[in-house]
Computed example of a mutant assay.
Amino acid sequence: MRRPASPASAPAPFDEAHAKVYDDQFAALNALKDCFHLLMEGYFSGLPEDARILVAGAGTGAEVRYLAPRHPGWRFTLVDPSAPMLAVARRHAEAGGYTDRCAFHADYVSATPLAAHDAATSLLVSHFLTDAVARQSYFADIAARLKSGGRLINVDLCADDTAHSFESVMSLWLSLMGLNGQSEDSRAHYRKAYGVQFAVHGPDAVAKMIEAGGFSPPAPVFQAALMRGWTAQKA
């Protein structure tokens, strides 16, 4: 799910064909997205009326579509290496009337300006970084673009694959994939790819990477099957 975020150890950016169908690709799981969007809004409550939000791995801009109407003074920096995905995000912004509050960067976070943002989102992004050094560097790149005390919410596919409960969690997740319309063969391929092509680090390892990237010890605030989320502040 979602999209790569760093040039190191990441798959190729999503192409135009993928961008066209992305918004509807996981429609049956929208309740999960709604949940961590609600957590995101709660965590960002109290930010200034003119807050600047960095959206790392912005894709088609779902986070901005949620936040922009609710916070008319906030400005957004959408960063994604896929120009086709950002083109969809821009069309959503034009339809929503908030394009003038958005800056679009078809690149990796590490290549974007070092502007001081009040908060950042990284939703279903860093699990594509299978190399631990690259993944920690990604969080450091986000921290470098936040003000001191700036807030981060991070959600990834993540599980301890050595735990006795892992296969039960994975079975539930694959059942959710089935509800979303994925075939049995597709789910079997997904199971083989997990821990190889994405999401190779367990929750303790991810939390340590976030902290080592320049954040306070992250708080675990969300879990739904294979999805886990943390909040943290720039140290």
Rank of each mutant, 00 (worst) to 15 (best):
M1V: 06
R2A: 13
P4G: 13
P4W: 10
S6P: 00
A8P: 00
S9K: 10
A12K: 08
E16Y: 02
E16Q: 11
A17S: 10
Y22I: 12
D23R: 02
A28P: 00
L29S: 07
L29C: 06
K33N: 09
H37S: 13
E41A: 08
E49M: 09
D50A: 13
A51C: 08
I53Q: 06
V55H: 01
G59L: 11
T60C: 07
V64W: 02
L67G: 06
A68I: 00
R70D: 05
W74E: 12
T77M: 13
L78N: 07
S82I: 13
P84R: 02
P84G: 07
L86Y: 00
A87D: 13
R90E: 15
R90P: 02
R90G: 09
A93H: 04
E94G: 00
A95V: 03
T99R: 11
T99P: 00
D100S: 13
D100K: 07
A103I: 00
F104G: 06
F104D: 07
H105V: 04
A106C: 02
D107N: 08
Y108R: 01
Y108M: 06
T112K: 01
T112V: 15
A116M: 01
H117G: 10
A119V: 03
S122C: 15
S122F: 01
S122K: 02
L123G: 04
L123A: 04
L123P: 05
L124P: 01
V125W: 10
V125Q: 06
L129H: 05
A132F: 07
R135N: 08
Q136P: 02
Y138T: 08
Y138Q: 13
F139I: 11
A140I: 07
D141H: 11
D141M: 13
I142W: 04
I142D: 09
A143W: 03
R145G: 05
L146Y: 02
K147T: 12
L152G: 08
L152C: 10
V155A: 06
C158E: 10
C158N: 14
A159K: 06
D160M: 12
T162K: 06
A163P: 07
H164R: 09
S168M: 14
W173I: 10
S175R: 14
L176Y: 14
Q182F: 14
D185C: 00
A188C: 06
R191S: 14
K192Q: 15
K192G: 08
V196M: 07
A199E: 09
A199P: 11
G202Y: 05
P203T: 06
D204A: 15
A207K: 08
K208D: 02
I210M: 11
S216E: 14
A219T: 13
A219W: 13
P220D: 11
V221C: 13
F222L: 15
F222P: 04
Q223A: 14
Q223Y: 03
A224N: 01
A225Q: 03
A232C: 12
Q233H: 09
